[in-house]
Design a protein around this nucleic acid. Structure first.
Lengths: 340, 340
DNA sequence: TTGTAGGCGTTATCAC
DNA sequence: GTGATAACGCCTACAA
């Protein structure tokens, strides 16, 4: 009676062994699907497991096996802007699918404050996970250093500047930026600028570099509006700045679709028609691209594959202790729609 | 030399104790900030910790303490649509902040397939976490049942239908829907319909119920377009359906801002002006609301607080073993802009 | 095929 | 204040 109200002690292998009339060793063997167990024993044990309601204590298992079967995915967005990042969800889903196929558990950790950063470091060192995927780390990220110290198998999504020894997967931001800028220029624009963002990460800097390359001689640094975040608001502000600097601007490469959408609003309010007066292209091919008016020409980023590939590389390290290659570049695709 | 290439064994309390010339017990005491440790011992131990590069093995600690200091947040979106859900990110951040303040680690688990569901169940039972927050569970969710079986402290975000014993936090979807519908009708609309979605969850059903209540005698079930997801595409399709059924429709309550945005597109293509010809209101006050043309009148959902409150309730259970109240309703607010 | 027992790294309860 | 030492629950040689 009182059993049902007080918190019952959870059954252990001991209880199962006693119930089935065998030793703990044998129970452990059937639990792990090992051979050399008689059918009779197996049956008795399975019945006992069901009867006593046994579930394995993974903390104990981890301790004994020195591994956890889990991989962390760390999202580091100290400014809480990741809510609007269209890629992170897809990266997560891709990583989850790849790990799931290998029967690993993905656990996502978010770092929002300095305090989070410390706590997560402790968590990573605590045997909770066998490896880690780091998303959207910034230049000065303490986590990547901590991971290196812990010798925890890890891979970054995006190319790390300060941790050259960390394996990574990413896209060729520079090449993609160059391609779409060239295409934009090809529509006969003469004065083309850029709304850049995220210049504290490699992705942001590389997109700017690609733009500069594509512009060649025509590059004009005053026509680069530098914003902090990849947001709609940044697009609104950045476009206003560009119009102020050069009212005759007729082409804009926005560092993200959200920025492009914001720029569209500014242009609309300024009475400029897109693509007639001004051609604009974005980056990501997120949901912003299709919903914008007009629909955005942009670069498709294989976010899901990014996550999946990162997961595979972590698993390779976990299993073999090392990695065949040290980085992977996934290919992008220019998607041409109506905005330029 | 070879030390640096082969994987070094991680230092344990043993090593620290030896290095500092004290016993493990004393080391453990300083590690846990307990009193009754001499300054000399503390200093020696701290130096030793730094010297041997000790980091605590949490698996062992969990085993001994029978707890983990981590709380799971389970996102269950089998259709991968959560990428576009504007609330989940905020819920996550809110929960993370609340747990962080109590020095708990939030770990997010996503369930995307049947296989994920099984694996996560095992994870939850394995001593990795002390409690769980369940987001966006659906009616037939096996996870909530598993959690009940495990006697794991848990709380749902959103009111559970099938697990009445599970504590939860949510908003008054029905009341909020009623309020905004009444306000919409107050703008002098005669033929008002609804684009409903997510009718397999309480939130979706409650919004429809609130709409019905507000309409009273004027409720017309043929003017309810039922969609599966809370997406832009659903809005496009739902609005088309409503226009087909009643070309004279002059008011629409969309079950989410994304749906409302989609509806706006259909209306624009159909040559209907908003709010002149048709008034439209949404739900969530997500980024869709402000970026829509015209900006949406909508219901603000306190997503961050939802996550924070859920976290607090889980911690209360973890610490006291029980809960003072069994549910919490957070208040919403009608935000009136230009779309109606 | 099965049982035995030592070890995984910490914590906690004792004596001292 | 500090040092032994028995848990914690599981895995895994090794022996039988």
């Amino acid at each position: 009676m009182s059993e049902s109200t007080t918190r019952l002690k959870r059954a252990t292998i001991f209880d199962v062994a006693a119930e089935a009339g065998v030793s703990r060793g044998t129970v452990s063997r059937v639990l792990n699907g090992e051979p050399y167990v008689s059918a009779a024993a197996r049956e008795a044990i399975e019945a006992a497991i069901a009867k006593v309601g046994y579930v394995r204590n993974t903390a104990a298992r981890n301790l004994a096996k020195q591994s956890s079967g889990a991989i962390a995915l760390i999202v580091h967005e100290p400014d809480s802007v990741f809510i609007d990042d269209p890629n992170i969800g897809a990266i997560l889903l891709g990583a989850n699918a790849a790990l799931s196929a290998a029967d690993y558990q993905l656990v996502s950790l978010i770092i929002d404050t300095e305090r989070d950063s410390h706590r997560v470091t402790g968590y990573l060192g605590g045997g909770f996970v066998d490896g880690a995927i780091i998303v959207s780390a910034r230049e000065d990220d303490p986590i990547s250093q901590a991971i290196a110290d812990l010798r925890l198998p890890a891979v970054m999504v995006g190319r790390p500047d300060n941790q050259p020894q960390l394996p990574w997967v990413g896209i060729d931001n520079r090449g993609a930026a160059r391609q779409i800028t060239e295409r934009l220029r090809g529509t006969g624009r003469n004065r083309v600028g850029m709304i850049a963002a995220g210049l504290d990460r490699d992705s942001g800097r590389d997109r700017l570099a690609g733009f500069r390359e594509a512009m060649g001689e025509a590059f004009d640094d005053t026509l680069v509006a530098r914003q902090r975040f990849y947001t709609y608001a940044a697009g609104v502000a950045g476009m206003a700045e560009l119009l102020r600097i050069d009212p005759d601007i007729d082409g804009v490469f926005a560092a993200s679709d959200a920025i492009a959408a914001g720029a569209l609003e500014t242009l609309r309010n300024a009475g400029r028609a897109v693509p007639r007066d001004v051609g604009i292209v974005g980056f990501d091919d997120s949901s912003w691209a299709l919903r914008a008016q007009p629909a955005l020409s942009t670069v498709r980023q294989p976010a899901g594959q990014l996550g999946a590939r990162a997961a595979e590389l972590v698993l390779e390290q976990v299993r073999t202790g090392s990695l065949a290659s040290n980085g992977a570049l996934l290919s992008t695709e220019v998607v041409w729609r109506d905005s330029a």
